[in-house]
């Protein structure tokens, strides 16, 4: 555990909680892609199956359980409790275009051809693109609520911090995981355009709206 890793995990946790609280407090999931949230629930489910097979640390187990629990709670709020506020007309990204190729790639490029390892690899690849339906929704509506942009910012910072974590681990532990690193770089790049808008608009007190 290093400072980048811990800060990354906490940033990830902050993102998840910001989104849950936003939906809960406003009693609305307008502007939120339910499809991205389903993908994240799928990511956590397939990645953390090792909860059942190996114990790493209390911290590790606790965070995994919280991430999974929050992911399903978010999906529940969007598709059940506050379904009436769900922006289904704009949330039209075709997720099969992500899930199918990512599933195929996980079968082809993995560390070990075993069920748990393939599912872990699938979750890593899927996470790297799971935000696309959300970014697609924002590009369709042309705007995002400020709280939604804070959520996205924390989520992007989490992955960027993990890149520093991997640099740290490479230098000080000789550890590197090519699958995680390549997927992590892809994931971080997807946020770059958003980071730019966040810094130039949201941090200056403006609402994030895209030019028509």
């Amino acid at each position: 555990m290093n400072i980048f890793r811990l800060a990354g995990d906490l940033s990830h946790l902050a993102a998840i909680i910001i989104l849950l609280l936003k939906i809960w407090k406003t009693r609305s999931c307008a502007g939120i892609s339910g499809k991205s949230q389903i993908l994240f629930a799928l990511v956590f489910t397939t990645r953390y199956l090792d909860l059942l097979t190996s114990f790493i640390s209390l911290y590790n187990t606790f965070m995994k359980v919280v991430y999974i629990g929050c992911a399903y709670a978010t999906v529940y709020l969007i598709y059940m409790k506050f379904k009436a506020t769900y922006d289904g007309n704009h949330d039209t990204f075709r997720v099969e275009f992500l899930v199918v190729p990512v599933g195929g790639l996980a079968f082809l490029v993995n560390h070990d051809f075993s069920p748990l390892e393939i599912l872990w690899t699938f979750s890593i690849y899927l996470e790297s693109v799971a935000i696309l339906p959300q970014l697609f929704l924002i590009s369709k509506t042309g705007e995002a609520e400020t709280i939604t942009t804070h959520y996205l910012f924390c989520l992007g910072v989490y992955r960027a911090l993990y890149l520093f974590n991997w640099i740290w681990r490479f230098y000080f532990e000789g550890f590197f995981d090519m699958i995680a690193i390549v997927a992590g770089v892809v994931q971080t790049i997807l946020y770059c355009d958003f980071f730019y808008l966040y810094v130039t608009k949201v941090l200056k007190g403006k609402k994030l709206s895209l030019p028509a």
């Binding site: 090792d50 190996s54 640390s57 590790n60 560390h111 390892e117 995981d177």
Partner: peptide, 10 residues
């Protein structure tokens, strides 16, 4: 067998 070291990350 698999090197489980990458599984200590979230």
């Amino acid at each position: 067998s698999t090197d489980p070291s990458h599984h200590d990350e979230l």
